[in-house]
């Protein structure tokens, strides 16, 4: 089974810009597990400020394994997760 570690920035700017809703979206994937044929272990880690938002409008920030996603949204993160599990 594949393992994914997803760090969701919980710094102030990212929380304001909806990073907790991204966690909600990732957790929501469990409900559609069957439709998506999801077989992976997903670990969600709310983490300290990852940094990039400090320059212009890059919040919220999410890191999936080693890939950094800026201006993340629930739909972007969900599709990245599904892509990462497939290949």
């Amino acid at each position: 089974m594949k393992k994914l570690r997803i760090e969701v920035c919980s710094g102030s700017e990212c929380v304001m810009m909806g990073s907790m809703d991204i966690i909600e979206a990732i957790e929501g994937l469990k409900q559609v597990k069957q439709q998506l044929k999801l077989r992976a272990q997903i670990e969600i880690v709310p983490c300290k400020c990852l940094g990039p938002c400090k320059n212009e409008n890059l919040a919220p920030v999410v890191r999936i394994n080693d890939e950094l996603i800026t201006q993340a949204t629930g739909d972007i993160v969900m599709s990245k997760i599904i892509a990462a599990i497939k290949d």
Binding site: S10, G11, S12, M16, C47, K48, C49
Partner: peptide, 14 residues
């Protein structure tokens, strides 16, 4: 309030 924290750069992690 969150807007104020962001404006002041308050990071709870620190």
């Amino acid at each position: 309030l969150m807007g104020m924290f962001v404006a002041k750069g308050v990071e709870f992690g620190d």
